[in-house]
Design a binder for these strands. Structure first.
Lengths: 327, 327
DNA sequence: TTGAAAGCGCTAACAG
DNA sequence: CTGTTAGCGCTTTCAA
C-alpha cells in the first residue's frame, strides 16, 4: 500500500516531480493546460495518494491540531471538541482528540507525542500538573490554548468560564429562596475550577451575612464522597440545599439521595455546576449551571488558529459567563 | 522550535548520527557504556526531542491508530473510544479520535487524511456511504475494524451488538406486560442498526400473533419526528408503549411527551435503545437497552492490533449482547 | 563497536 | 512554463 509515489506519476505523465508537486499544491499560475491534464490522468490512472508525512517533514506543518481533553466521557469536553472540530474543518485543518484521562502522566505523554508528530498547535484541558511542560511550550512560542482550567502563574491563551461569579449568583439565589443552610460538595481542590467555585460559594454566604460552616463544605474524592454525604446528613442541623461542583459529584449526590430516600425539592434543593446531557429531561427539580461549550470551543479554536498564523493579538484570557438555570 | 536535531546531539556527544539513532531505538547490544552516557548527556543538555515525522517517513509506521466516530456527542461512541484508547495505551500506540459528524463526506476526508498521515490502522463507525473506500482499504490489506454498524457485502472485521435480538426480547417483554399497541420510532433506515432494530420489533410482534400496524412505525428524520409523534397520538387507537430506536429519537420523544403532558408509566411505556448517561438517575419509568461499550471497544482494539501485527486469525465478526433493563 | 552513505517522498528555490 | 538540485531528520545496511 501507498505504493505509487510522485515519481511514478511524473514518469507516467512525462513531466518532472516538481511539476507534479506544483500541480498538487494548486500552483497553476504558470502551468500549461495540457500538462495539467496529463498529470490529472496519470494520478487517477495510478490511483496516486500523496504522502503527507513526507510533505510535513519538509514543510514542518501538518495541518493538524490536537485537543487534549481531561476526560472524553465528560459532556462539556465533547461539546467543546465538537465546536473546535467544526471551526478547523472550515479552515482545512484536522482536529484530533486525545484523552488524558485526568492523568498528568498521560497528559504529558500525549503532549509530547503530538508535538513530536508536529501538530501545528494544541488545545489543552490541563490537569495542572505539568507546569514546566506548559511553560516550555509557551516559551518556545508553540501555539497553545488552555481550556476550562487556568494554570497559575502562566501568561497564556485561555478560555474559561466565570466559575466564581456563576456560583456566587446561584448561591445568592438559593439564599433568596429561603435556604439558610447550604452545603457544597467538591472533589479535591487541585484544579482552578473547583477552587473558584468554592470561592464563589463562600463569598456569597459571607456577603449575605452568613458564616462558613466547615461541616457543610465537603471536599472529598469521588470514592469518599458518599461517606462524607452520610456524615453531612446525620448532622442535627441538616442542609436544605446542596451544591454539586461538577457532574461526577452530582452523580454521587443523586445516587446517595436515592439510596437514602431523600426527596429532591421537598427535602433538599440540588444544584449542579456542569453540562449534563438530557438535563432538561430530568423531572426532578434540579438546577443547573451550564457552560457555553460551543462558544468557548469556537473561541479557543480561533485563538489557536491566530497563533498558528501569527496573527494573534489582543487579550489572552477569555471568560465566558455560564447560564444559571433554576427550577 | 524543534530546533535541535539528531546531528546536533551527535556533534555534542562526539559520535555519529547513526550511533545516536541506535541509542534512541534501544539498540544497546554493541554500544559502549561511555558512548551511551555521552549521548544521554548530550540529549538532556540540548533538550533534544526526536522528530517522529522523519522517523515515520522512513519506517512507514506511525504508532498511531485512528478512531472515526459517527458522532462524538454520542455517549456510546465516547465509551467505546475510551476503551480503545486504554487498550492501545497499554500497547504503546496512540489513539486519536476524529468526528465524522454523521457526514459521509467528512468521513471520507478523515479516512483519507488519516491514511495519508500513515496511521497504522483505523476503527470506523461507518456512515455506510463510502463502500468503495471501505472496500479498497480492505483489498489493500489495510488494518480496519468496523464498529457498531455493519457494512453490507463486505467481509471485514467488525464489532456490533445484537440489535435484532435485544429489540426482540424487549418487545416481547412489553407484550408480556400487557401492551397490545406498541409503536416504534426510528430515523431513516440508512444504517444497519436501525434496520435490525426494526426487524426485531416486527419479528417480536409477528411471533406473538400481532400484525404490524404501519401507523405505529414512525420512520422519520429528527426534524420530522415530533410531527409524526403528534399524528401518532391523535389516532383514536393510541399506543400504550413506544420504542425509541436510539438516543436522538429518545430525546425527541421525551420532549414531545413533556410538551403534550403525557405521563410516562401511567399513560405510556417508553423504552430506548442506547447508552444514556445518567440513565439510572432518571426517575421516570423508562427502560433501556444498553450496549456493552467497553467490552466492544476493547475487542475492536484487539482485532485492529492483531491486524497491524499480522497476527489476526479466527472469526471476523463479533456480536455482543446488549442488556435490556426494564423498569 | 561505530561511522559513512544512501535514501524515505516530497517541497522549494533557482535556472533554463 | 518546466526541470534540476538540494535538502527535511531520521533509519539502515554495510564497511571499517
Amino acid at each position: 500500500m501507498e505504493r505509487v509515489t510522485m515519481a511514478d506519476v511524473a514518469k507516467e505523465a512525462g513531466v518532472s516531480k516538481s511539476t507534479v508537486s506544483q500541480f498538487l499544491n494548486n500552483r497553476f499560475e504558470y502551468m500549461g493546460e495540457k500538462t495539467k491534464i496529463k498529470i490529472e490522468e496519470a494520478i487517477s490512472k495510478l490511483g496516486y495518494q500523496p504522502n503527507y508525512i513526507a510533505r510535513s517533514l519538509k514543510q514542518k506543518r501538518t495541518s493538524m491540531v490536537g485537543i487534549i481533553v481531561a476526560n472524553i466521557m465528560h459532556r462539556f469536553s465533547t461539546e467543546v471538541s465538537r465546536a473546535i472540530e467544526d471551526f478547523f474543518h472550515k479552515h482545512d485543518l484536522h482536529a484530533i482528540v486525545c484523552n488524558a484521562d485526568d492523568d498528568p502522566l498521560k497528559e504529558k505523554k500525549y503532549i509530547e507525542m503530538l508535538r513530536a508528530k508536529q501538530v501545528d498547535g494544541l488545545i489543552i484541558f490541563p490537569t495542572g500538573h505539568n507546569t514546566d511542560l506548559y511553560k516550555s511550550m509557551i516559551k518556545e512560542g508553540y501555539p497553545v490554548v488552555f481550556m476550562d482550567r487556568k494554570v497559575s502563574h502562566l501568561e497564556a491563551f485561555s478560555v474559561v468560564t466565570d466559575n466564581l461569579e456563576s456560583t456566587y449568583q446561584a448561591i445568592r439565589e438559593l439564599i433568596n429562596r429561603g435556604n439558610q443552610k447550604i452545603a457544597f460538595a467538591v472533589q479535591p481542590l487541585t484544579i482552578s475550577t473547583r477552587i473558584e467555585r468554592l470561592e464563589g460559594y463562600k463569598k456569597a454566604l459571607l456577603d449575605s451575612g452568613f458564616e462558613i460552616n466547615p461541616d457543610f463544605v465537603l471536599e472529598a474524592s469521588i470514592s469518599e464522597m458518599k461517606k462524607r454525604l452520610d456524615k453531612l446528613f446525620l448532622l442535627k442541623d441538616r442542609p436544605t440545599a446542596l451544591f454539586a461542583a461538577n457532574d461526577r459529584v452530582f452523580l454521587e449526590v443523586v445516587e446517595f439521595l436515592q439510596i437514602k430516600g431523600i426527596k429532591l425539592g421537598s427535602e433538599i434543593d440540588l444544584i449542579v455546576f456542569d453540562n449534563i446531557p438530557f438535563a432538561h429531561l430530568i423531572e426532578s427539580p434540579i438546577s443547573f449551571i451550564i457552560q457555553p461549550a460551543f462558544e468557548m470551543g469556537n473561541k479557543a479554536a480561533e485563538l489557536l488558529f491566530d497563533q498558528i498564523n501569527k496573527t494573534d493579538a489582543g487579550p489572552k484570557e477569555f471568560v465566558f459567563p455560564s447560564k444559571v438555570l433554576f427550577r
